[in-house]
């Protein structure tokens, strides 16, 4: 798989895919998309990068161990649900604020954080499995 063309294109492709995955994640509440599908896109981006350039650059690029990313995602999801404790509403109730940032009204919600948690959980899990399998490839 380590052809010159693939190796040259893969980093750009992966970067584009990661950006796209974030776009998909953030638009998810109103348009097709969301944390799960965004996570899958990002995971395939990393898998492609890994197949093209080897596992070590991927591990260096994402800095954290993918399993830690996944656990962080689960924790973030749980924490987003817990916020409702402070407002005296049941667990996982969606809470919304609309701060005005640089003249644009931005909709922030616990639901968004929860979706980001899903994203991280999916990216982390699939990437760690894929990288572990690819690593075997090189032995």
């Amino acid at each position: 798989m380590q052809t010159l063309i693939f190796r040259t294109v893969a980093p750009f492709l992966s970067a584009l895919m990661v950006v796209f995955s974030i776009f998909v994640l953030l638009r998810g509440h109103n348009e097709p998309g969301g944390g799960f599908i965004g996570g899958l896109i990002a995971a395939s981006a990393l898998a492609i990068y890994g197949i093209a350039c080897g596992v070590t650059p991927v591990r260096r690029a994402i800095y954290f161990h993918p399993m830690n990313i996944a656990s962080f995602g689960v924790m973030l999801g749980g924490a987003a649900g817990m916020i409702s404790i402070f407002f005296g509403v049941p667990f996982m109730t969606g809470l919304w604020v609309y701060p005005n940032i640089l003249g644009v009204e931005v909709a922030l919600s616990t639901v968004l954080f929860f979706d980001i948690g899903v994203y991280f959980a999916v990216v982390g899990t699939i990437t760690s499995v894929a990288l572990a399998l690819e690593e075997r490839d090189e032995i």
């Binding site: 109103n30 348009e31 097709p32 996982m92 999916v122």
Partner: peptide, 22 residues
């Protein structure tokens, strides 16, 4: 506050299920 019903179900109406799934 979401137009994408699938996503709203996943992260809001049935969010606790999703938490278990992840």
């Amino acid at each position: 506050h979401g137009a994408n019903i699938v996503n709203v179900i996943l992260v809001d109406f049935r969010g606790t299920d999703t938490l278990g799934e992840i």
